[in-house]
Write a protein that binds this DNA or RNA. Structure first.
Lengths: 230, 230
DNA sequence: CATCAAACTTAAGAAATTCTTAAGAATTAT
DNA sequence: ATAATTCTTAAGAATTTCTTAAGTTTGATG
């Protein structure tokens, strides 16, 4: 379940964090939002493969959020709710949710349902997001093929190199500190591994830059970190 | 919901007939079977878009039936059960079911879940689609005949080899990790079977590649997995 | 503007991981 | 019983990753 991004939307922090722990354990990357408005913002900025959505939330409730999400994205939505009423379930599913779980729930069941949805609808790259190609001034990234090209030429990247490039390219323009990069790519806290990242940056530049000493794409922001030029 | 065929499998006649009434009301055509063995027969003879499957049945129970169905068809399966135990739900979903409803259930909820699954099933086109021939630079795959050719020459593949090739060819360009391949082809979680896949890859290359050491079609992506060249 | 410290770059080789391949055992089909 | 298929094991090859250490650039300071 690596490479999958799940957005958890719930106004209770404990619920968000609890779900995060279980999903991370499966290798899923978890994004979190505290209400529908925040969720929509995150959807605009990040690639997300599945949403877990609480019904009872301030500002924008789950059902209304489902409507709005469906207008833009066709990704699986699992509704989470304290209401065990059948009518609510039916309404949720009719509105466009793909599954409905009532609180209190067994976290393992939630995980099983998330995996079931991802397995069926996301494994095959026929939908938005998965097959999207990012193009930044001749540097392109094709996620499904895990392929990067510079002016049409395929660049052969190692897995770590690829992950770094994918991180920077999907968030082009944003600066990532070495620590952030390490945590995102290795999925563990960074402890004295600053130079490890630096070495990989070097290798990447060697491969994607015409003149690695004057990088055009992968730029340093002194004292802060690295970013990919938009 | 017209033009859809749903197979209802339950040993109790009242349940079968009850579900039928509600589904017919939505325009769905309902087929019925009283146990897993009958269900498999019907699947061979009729086109079916979704299955509702009771767990407790004589002869062939629901979980085992799910296995057998998955071997042949990739259509949505909704498991129906008197067991409300979480572990059963999780098992059912892991085995390849797409949803799990416990008895007693609200018929309207069942209908809502059926519609939700069918809606997805159609938008994503995961169902056994039209039997198109895929041609990738001289390597062709004809699903209906389960036949693979290289420059016109038929290649004799074993069932597992064929499944791997079909997976990779229908998603040409996309990289599959060894785990993904295992899960898709064997329909079960991959546990220490990495090299099993590797060996099959070797055998396939032997058959489809002119020079297996420098594969033209079935390429490795180091540290990530394998893919079929577009 | 000279100097220093911190931040970044670069190179090279050791260690770890991943892939390939072959051969034979176990299983399944004919 | 025979053949075909699938799985396991294991050793070697190829590739990637990490560490170390030395060099270079940048920004701050007096």
């Amino acid at each position: 379940m690596d490479n999958y991004y799940v957005l958890v939307v719930d106004d209770e922090k404990e619920i968000r964090d609890g779900i995060e722990i279980y999903l991370k354990n499966e290798g899923v990357t978890v994004l979190k939002a505290k209400d529908g408005i925040d969720a929509l913002e995150i959807l605009n900025e990040h690639q997300v493969h599945l949403i877990i959505l609480d019904i009872m939330m301030p500002r924008l409730d789950g059902i209304s959020a489902t409507y709005k999400i469906r207008e833009k994205k066709n990704i699986p939505i699992i509704i989470l709710s304290a209401k065990a009423e059948d009518t609510d379930k039916i309404l949720g599913l009719q509105v466009g949710a793909d599954d409905y779980i009532t609180k209190p729930f067994n976290p393992m069941e939630l995980v099983a349902r998330v995996k079931s949805q991802l397995r069926r609808y996301v494994t095959f790259g026929t939908y938005e997001g998965i097959n999207k190609v990012i193009d930044l001034n001749g540097l392109t990234l094709e996620k499904s093929a895990k392929e990067v090209t510079v002016h049409g030429e395929t660049v052969k990247l190692t897995p770590i190199e690829y992950k770094i490039v994918e991180l920077l390219m999907t968030n082009a323009g944003r600066v990532f500190s070495i620590n952030e990069i390490y945590e995102q790519v290795w999925n563990e806290p960074c402890y004295n591994a600053e130079n490890t990242v630096a070495v990989h940056i070097r290798k990447i530049r060697e491969k994607i830059e015409i003149d690695p000493k004057n990088p055009r794409y992968l730029k340093v922001v002194w004292g802060i970190g690295y970013k990919m030029e938009k």
